[in-house]
Simulated assay, not measured.
Amino acid sequence: MTRSLSKKHDEQGISLPYNLQHITHVQVDPSDSTGFSGLPEEWRQILKSSGIGKEETMRNPQIVLDILEFRSAGCTRPAPPRAKDFKAASKDAVQFKLENPLNHIKSLKKAGEGSSGSVYIGDRLSDGRRIALKRLEIGKQTNIPALENEIAMMALSKHPNITECIQTFLWERELWIMMEAVEGGALCDLITNFCLEEDIVAYLCREVALALSFLHTRSRIHRDIKSDNILIGLDGSVKLADFGYCVQLTEEAGRRNSLGGNPYWMGPPPIKTPN
């Protein structure tokens, strides 16, 4: 049996477009305050609130347009909390146990010492979990609100790529912060002694980006990203640590006017324009 197709079926055609609408036509325009002409009002407001300056826009116009399109499609982070709501959550997160933390730990060994205090590694008696203890002496010059903020930021930021704050103790004018132990060391030691392959670098970047994405969607800024503050577990896990400079943005204070962190790890914009 043979099968034949008519000429009508052999000829395929494409119809003319219909219901065509020209919605947005944006052009780079140095004379406009935004760097663009033809921006929809919604995009203009997004750009205005983003903190992206005209100079940066002129250098990377297509990247800026991609960001505006992404944001206008509804891919935005939640609104920051009200200051009083964050203050209440922070207060709940910072609960000091007034007892000796050493009663809860066995096999405690000193792991390191810095300007702010000493760090110890041991096993928790209740379940044998490996933990780290950071010991800080409390004196007249101690910035208590800053310490409370650091603890609150860690306690409120529970994520697989962020060092977990387990418990805090206040005993005989010493503050002890119990955290999960990440015994592989800091990333700075790893990159000092080894030349990493590209796929390893990509993995490390992805894990840190996941931690930052978690923080940024909650309107929190770490402000001290550097290899010293990225810890590597013996199982290959990657953890963001040291929340001493971390801040929470709120409805009332949606931007920071202070400059923190290490200048060697900052991008040019924060250094050139602190505000």
Rank of each mutant, 00 (worst) to 15 (best):
E41W: 10
E252G: 08
S4N: 07
V119F: 05
K48S: 13
P61R: 12
A111R: 10
E113V: 11
I200M: 11
Q21M: 08
Q167R: 09
F36L: 08
G128S: 06
S107G: 06
I225F: 03
S118L: 03
A111Y: 05
K272S: 10
R223W: 06
Q21S: 08
D235R: 05
A83I: 15
Q45D: 15
A79V: 10
E252M: 12
I131S: 01
K226I: 10
A93P: 04
I121P: 00
V208P: 01
A111Q: 11
A202P: 00
R255F: 13
I67E: 10
A253L: 09
S50K: 11
D85F: 07
K272M: 10
I225G: 03
N193V: 00
E55D: 09
L210C: 15
H159C: 10
K158D: 15
R218K: 12
L133Q: 02
M266E: 04
E174N: 15
K158L: 12
L259G: 09
F194D: 11
V119A: 07
G53Y: 02
S258A: 12
S157A: 14
E113F: 06
R59L: 14
L190S: 01
N262W: 01
T2I: 07
S90P: 01
H104M: 09
S115L: 08
N19K: 15
G38Y: 09
W176P: 00
G122E: 06
L212C: 08
K91W: 03
R129T: 07
E69Q: 07
I162R: 05
A79D: 13
R3P: 00
T142H: 09
S227K: 02
K48E: 13
I63K: 14
K91P: 00
I177V: 14
G184T: 01
L249A: 06
T217N: 11
I63V: 13
T168Y: 01
T273W: 11
M154W: 02
S258W: 03
M266A: 07
D66M: 13
S15I: 12
I221T: 06
D228W: 01
E11V: 11
L156R: 05
L210D: 09
N100D: 15
L156N: 12
A73I: 02
A132R: 01
A79Y: 06
L210G: 01
A241L: 03
A111D: 05
T142G: 08
N149E: 13
I105N: 02
E11T: 10
I144F: 12
G38P: 07
L125G: 00
R206C: 07
H25A: 08
S50Q: 09
D189Q: 14
A79G: 04
S116V: 13
E172Q: 15
S258T: 15
P268S: 10
S15D: 15
K97N: 07
I151D: 04
K54W: 07
K134M: 04
L47Y: 10
G254A: 13
M153L: 04
L249N: 10
E251T: 15
T34Y: 14
V182I: 15
V238F: 02
P81S: 13
V94R: 04
R173L: 11
A253M: 13
M153N: 04
E252C: 11
L108Q: 06
L20A: 10
T192P: 00
F169G: 01
T2F: 08
L108S: 13
P145S: 13
G267W: 00
P78T: 05
